[in-house]
Each structure stands twice: as C-alpha cells, then as structure tokens.
Amino acid sequence: MVSDQDAASQHAHPGTGTYLAVAAVLTIITLVEVGVFYVPAFKAVLAPVLITLSATKFALVVMFYMHLKSDSKLFTLIFSLPLLLALGVAIALLFLYGAFVRG
C-alpha cells in the first residue's frame, strides 16, 4: 500500500536526541513528584503541584512520543475532544458529589 508509506514518512518524527531528552524530563518530573509527596512543607499545595506535574508528563508523552506535535492536527482534534469530555465529566461528577465543597 503506497498510502501507508506516504503517511508514515509524511511528517518528520523527532529524532533520538529528542526522545532521550523527553525521557530525562519525564524521569526528573517523576522524582520531583515523589519528592513533593514526602516533603511536609508542600502539604498545602500538594494537589495543584502534583496535578500540574502529571499534566506536564501527560502532555510530553502525547506530543513527542505519540507525535501529536508534528502530526496532522486532525489527530489532535480527534483525541482532545473526547479527552476534554472525559475531563468535563470527571469535574462535573466531583462537583455533584461535593468534592469541591470545603468543610
């Protein structure tokens, strides 16, 4: 199938250097995550810090390892719409279950 090769070679995948750099960043973030978890000083801001770190890891893998950064925007669209729906559903359910109500 000609189209297969076309599709595979259409977009330049990042090189090995990028892959290794991403892996290094992922490792560092994971170390920071676990570190933050054990440091009592972070207790108050634990949730926002951890969510930000994990969202960063998520984005790195999706953009570079799954090539969404360099691939067709249609793939990004077809992935992010359901992702946003899932996120919306989770937030709505947490709201309905009173997770954001203090006290």
Binding site: I78, F79, L81, P82, L83, L85, A86, L87, V89, A90, L93, L94, A99
Partner: peptide, 15 residues
C-alpha cells in the same frame, strides 16, 4: 479518544 472516556469513567468513580 474512546478509551479516554472508558478510563475517565473508572477514574471518576475512584475519585
């Protein structure tokens, strides 16, 4: 994309 909703439902339930 579909799997996002599958795991989204599981994670929401956990939460």
């Amino acid at each position: 994309g579909s799997e996002c909703l599958l795991f989204g439902s599981l994670i929401s339930t956990y939460l």
